[in-house]
């Protein structure tokens, strides 16, 4: 009995649903990220079955969550140095660095025969990427609703959205993690905050290679994933090709949308009054809050787990690494930051 068969036996009956599998392989970032948007329209129209897409971007890029602000999120100096595109996805979540060392899976499905959409679908469908990873030697688990983790460290981020009458779930596995790019791309209000961000990213984000010492071939991972969706009782799939209308829509509508500066630079969301000037979610409940200190030119930085402050720093005014001073727990400054964090909606 293969590993997948053992899983299938434990899960129960063979799934009846038959989906299409589109393997885009290595392709440019717009296609790797957004072809699924074109697919979703075909799925919603009933022209094609619910569809699993797999892909690997052939170049690095930055992906903004649908509600993220380009002007507030991205360091323009980083973009000028690295010359990478920034694409806004239609799904949720935060700003992410994506590159050829990451493998993507995307689902486009109808409500009536795929699932109701929403966070519960993330939990249900992510059983398959977890199972595929485990069969290939990576001891991943789901940290509900949307992260795959090894221990407490994130190895895969996932998100979803409703688009054009269908639901889309997107995710990726970190084969290798470029922690420096992940931290350098973020716009920060003071340079002394960047080392704190990088250290927290290194602490909270891992990769397949870091955990196992090697990387499976993309094709092996893809095949295990396809089989895991079946073995987990979710759906069977049959290899397919994009339809002419999907290709046309992708060229004429999807690509045009992603190349339109007004799509990339959607206006930032209104902000609630309060001391938090920057909120950075790193992985699950882990993140950083940057706070202004009333009446001073200093900033406070809280490294948080949910609403609990694990570390706190006073930052500024000198530029450079010297600008950050770690605060001892029990001091008035630490307590002031902890109070502000407790009153913040955090990463709700």
């Amino acid at each position: 009995m293969s590993g997948h068969d053992a899983i299938a036996a434990s899960v129960g009956e063979e799934p009846r649903a038959l989906w299409r599998h589109l393997d885009l392989g290595r392709c440019d970032p717009v296609r790797a990220q957004a072809f699924v948007e074109s697919v979703a329209e075909s799925v919603a129209a009933g022209e094609v079955p619910n569809t699993l897409v797999t892909a690997q971007p052939n170049a690095p890029y930055v992906s903004l969550g649908f509600h993220q602000s380009f002007s507030e999120e991205i360091d323009e100096g980083f973009l000028a140095r690295r010359r990478v595109p920034v694409l806004r996805r239609v799904e949720g979540g935060g700003t992410t660095w994506l590159d050829p060392d990451q493998w993507f899976y995307q689902l486009a499905y109808r409500e009536e025969d795929g699932g109701p959409g929403g966070p519960a679908d993330l939990v249900r469908f992510l059983r398959a990427p977890v199972a595929a990873a485990r069969l290939l030697g990576l001891s991943a688990e789901l940290r509900a609703p949307s992260d795959l983790v090894v221990g407490d460290r994130k190895v895969s981020g996932n998100a979803g959205g409703d688009w054009a009458g269908a639901h889309i779930l997107v995710g990726g596995v970190l084969g290798r993690a470029d922690h420096r790019a992940m931290s350098d791309l973020l716009k920060l209000p003071h340079p002394a905050i960047r080392p704190i961000v990088r250290e927290e990213i290194e602490r909270r984000v891992t990769s397949w290679e870091a955990e196992t010492g090697s990387l499976p071939a993309y094709a092996a991972w893809r095949d295990h994933l396809v089989e895991a969706f079946r073995a987990q009782g979710l759906f069977r799939s049959r290899p397919g090709r994009p339809t002419p209308s999907e290709e046309t829509r992708f060229r004429t509508e999807t690509t045009a949308r992603h190349e339109d500066p007004s799509w990339r630079e959607l206006p930032p969301a209104a902000k609630a009054p309060g001391p938090v000037v920057r909120r950075l979610r790193i992985a699950g409940p882990h993140g950083l809050l940057v706070l202004s200190a009333t009446g001073t030119d200093r900033l406070g930085v809280a490294v948080v787990h949910g609403a609990t402050v694990r570390e706190a720093y006073a930052v500024g005014p000198p530029a450079g690494r010297e600008g950050a001073r770690r605060l001892a727990e029990g001091t008035d400054e630490f307590a002031e930051i902890a109070r502000a964090v407790a009153n913040d909606p955090g990463f709700a």
Binding site: G65, G92, G118, P119, D121, L122, A159, D162, W163
Partner: peptide
């Protein structure tokens, strides 16, 4: 319009 919860966006 759009709403987001738990990384899921409803348009």
């Amino acid at each position: 319009l759009s709403l987001e919860s738990e990384k899921w966006v409803g348009h």
